[in-house]
Design a protein around this nucleic acid. Sequence first.
DNA 1: ATGTTATTTCGGTGTTTACCGAATCAACAA
DNA 2: TTGTTGATTCGGTAAACACCGAAATAACAT
Lengths: 92, 92
Amino acid sequence: MSDVYRALSDPTRRRILELLRERPMTAGELAAHFPHAKPTMSGHFNTLKAADLIVGEKSGTTITYRLNLSVLEEALMGLMNRFRIGRDDHDR
Amino acid sequence: MSDVYRALSDPTRRRILELLRERPMTAGELAAHFPHAKPTMSGHFNTLKAADLIVGEKSGTTITYRLNLSVLEEALMGLMNRFRIGRDDHDR
DNA sequence: ATGTTATTTCGGTGTTTACCGAATCAACAA
DNA sequence: TTGTTGATTCGGTAAACACCGAAATAACAT
């Protein structure tokens, strides 16, 4: 669960998530959006997978990644609640 | 602005913010909540200050830190918006 | 001046991270 | 089987990070 925070802490990974919000994409398609080498991108995919923020489906020779929105949602909501942001604080 | 994400990525720093949400505390008071040495904690305070997430006010020999809630709020809201979480997505 | 207390900065260590090129793997086609 | 393509894992490097003990600073009291 703390993997999520770690995953979100890198700008490249945040951008990957943003791209995947539009539509699922293959590893190569995603990589084309960044100036990094393929192995670097693959590493980022692994980090995001470990946090369960993305899921990869292999089909033939390509892997299509899609965003796991519910996990991202839960993580952000968790943060909001933790700091009591975005709702009233009645018991004060 | 990316300092905020970095600051949030460490569990100790998240806990510091959580503690400061209850009430402002001095550096020593905060440090007493953790198993780390003073210099380590001081480093965390610096990171949080750099992200503008906390503000320190010196008074005599002590420094009292308080949470800068608005910055935290903005950061989290920014994340929510970026991933279009917590609101309707009308233009689809 | 000397000491005390709260906190920071300094110097250094071990670990983690982001990155790359080269090698590898898996699926498919000729 | 040989090659091609999409993607990964391997081995290694340089930078960043969390952590610590020791030394420094700053305010205050004796």
